[in-house]
């Protein structure tokens, strides 16, 4: 399974990662080798096998809706790179 440069570039776009040309070359090689190793999975016939997403029995976990104290606004914003008027500040989305 040889990945094309376009595929690697597309993955970086989907993952919101700015990669330079050198990184794209490296990942193209390394990910191709890793995916080739994974080809062995295709030897197994799994048509009748259900997927496992979690080992726990799937069920909805419910709790009482008891109001309680949550983090203060100050605590929530303390790690923000930029905050203003009690909000996280980001570059303009719409001009």
């Amino acid at each position: 399974m040889k990945l094309s440069r376009e595929q690697v570039h597309h993955m970086a776009e989907l993952a919101q990662l700015a990669l330079d040309e050198e990184e794209l070359t490296l990942y193209q090689e390394q990910l191709s080798a890793i995916l080739e190793h994974f080809e062995r999975l295709q030897n197994l016939d799994t048509a009748a096998i259900p997927p496992t997403a979690t080992v726990l029995p799937l069920c909805s976990v419910m709790r009482e809706d008891d109001p309680s104290v949550s983090l203060s606004l100050e605590d929530v914003l303390a790690n923000a790179p930029e905050a203003e008027e009690g909000c996280f500040r980001v570059p303009a989305v719409l001009e």
């Binding site: 990945l3 595929q7 690697v8 597309h10 993955m11 970086a12 989907l14 993952a15 990662l17 990942y27 990910l31 890793i34 995916l35 994974f38 999975l41 295709q42 197994l44 799994t46 096998i49 259900p50 997927p51 496992t52 997403a53």
Partner: peptide, 25 residues
């Protein structure tokens, strides 16, 4: 990158779903 590829349209069944099925085994 690897995870994004495994979950992306066109490869999900061949990689991610397949891996989950073999996880069952």
């Amino acid at each position: 990158m690897l995870g994004t590829y495994a979950l992306s349209a066109g490869y999900y069944d061949a990689y991610y779903l397949k891996a989950q099925q073999v996880r069952t085994l």
